[in-house]
Amino acid sequence: MLSRFIETNGLRLHVMEKGPADGPLVILLHGFPEFWYGWRAQIDALADAGFRVWAPDQRGYNLSDKPVGIHAYTIDKLTADIIGLIDTAGQEKATVIGHDWGAVVAWWLAATYPQRLARLACLNVPHYAVMLRFLRRSPHQLLHSWYAGFFQIPWLPEWLTERGNWWLMTRALRRTSRPGTFNEADLRRYRQAWSQTGPTGDTAFRTMVNWYRAFAQQRPPLPANEQITVPTLLIWGAQDAFLIRDMAQPSINLCVDGRLVFIETATHWVQHEEAHTVNRLLLEFMRH
């Protein structure tokens, strides 16, 4: 696996690469509070199957640049980063696979740059329009999303989370996943990633939380057409503690060519817990 830095959209992203240079490009987009390492169970499998795999630390995360200010983390900038990666790879199109916030970016990419995506796969996150509707109309989902509101408070989430060697974050990962999903060696990697500092000396956690703040406070207009024309696979761990499964089918209903697969025993961290099944589903989808 090769570690490199790529200039895109006015900043520098850290990217892990594996697979043949002439293989079809696949970009893996992690979510909160992960980094490229969240795809470690998928990178080898996809590369061994002949795909050219890029797994970036998205802006604000781990070793990638951490621009200052909420305005630097709006969804249009996040999607432009990925278009820049596709351009740097010298490709017209890529398959984009996203989990959590990475899936939000992936859905937005498919709506705004459909000509640049070969395929779209999202894990445990609904279409953005479905998510927004459920947040307005579903008390059940609103209750599950309480933490997104908490993250809107200035400085307090960062201060609380960094205390006790990131005790709150590690506890949250363990309590919302199946036992043994994140071992102590994994958590050390996460603590190290969260502790990376930006230009102001703040930890990466501040810029990670700014994703939530930007989407709530400075979201650009929604794409005019909600329909997704790119072939789409949605994989959903049914035991998700954050996002209710009721949002999955309405998301696929907005896809011209979409498939939904529930993994009943998995949680939000489906690619960790059911790596073999997720890898099989992704490879079947990309080879079809």
Rank of each mutant, 00 (worst) to 15 (best):
T170P: 00
W194E: 10
P139C: 09
L142A: 14
I153T: 11
G198I: 03
Q192M: 10
F151G: 04
R175S: 13
G180K: 06
S177R: 00
D202N: 15
H144L: 15
P179L: 02
R213H: 02
F205D: 00
Y190M: 09
P199V: 10
P199R: 07
T170K: 13
R119F: 05
Q141Y: 10
A118C: 10
P126C: 10
W167P: 00
R171M: 06
Q196Y: 09
L135M: 14
Q192N: 14
P221T: 03
Q196R: 14
T207R: 11
V130G: 08
P154F: 06
A216H: 13
V130Q: 03
I153R: 08
W167T: 08
C122H: 02
T207H: 13
Y147P: 02
Y128N: 15
R178I: 10
R136S: 11
P220R: 03
V130I: 11
L117G: 02
G149E: 06
P199G: 08
R206K: 13
T203I: 08
G180P: 04
N183C: 12
M208Y: 01
L160V: 12
R175Y: 09
G149F: 13
L123R: 05
C122Q: 03
R136W: 05
N165W: 05
R119K: 14
R119N: 08
T200C: 07
G164R: 12
G164Q: 13
Y128L: 14
A172E: 10
R137C: 10
L187K: 08
T203L: 07
C122F: 09
T112D: 03
T200L: 12
N183G: 11
V209K: 00
Y190P: 06
S138Q: 01
D186S: 05
L142F: 11
T203G: 13
W155D: 15
Y128H: 13
M169R: 05
A121K: 06
H140L: 14
F134P: 00
W146S: 03
S145M: 09
T197G: 08
L173D: 06
T197Q: 12
P126T: 08
Q192L: 14
D202I: 01
L156V: 14
R116F: 07
P220D: 07
W159M: 14
H144M: 15
R136P: 02
I153D: 04
W194C: 04
A185Q: 14
V125M: 12
A118G: 06
F215V: 09
L160P: 05
R174G: 02
D202W: 01
S145R: 07
P114E: 07
F215Y: 10
R136V: 02
V130F: 01
Q217R: 15
T200R: 12
R171Q: 11
A118D: 15
R119G: 03
A172Y: 01
N210W: 07
A216R: 13
L187D: 04
F134W: 10
L143A: 15
T170Q: 12
A118K: 13
P179M: 03
T200P: 04
P126D: 11
W155T: 12
A193P: 00
H144P: 00
R206E: 03
R119I: 01
P114L: 09
A129P: 00
W167N: 00
A129F: 11
S177N: 04
Y113L: 05
D186M: 07
V125G: 01
F151N: 06
P154N: 07
S138C: 09
Q152S: 04
F150K: 02
P179W: 01
L117N: 07
P157K: 03
N165R: 15
E184Q: 13
F182C: 06
F151Q: 01
M169T: 13
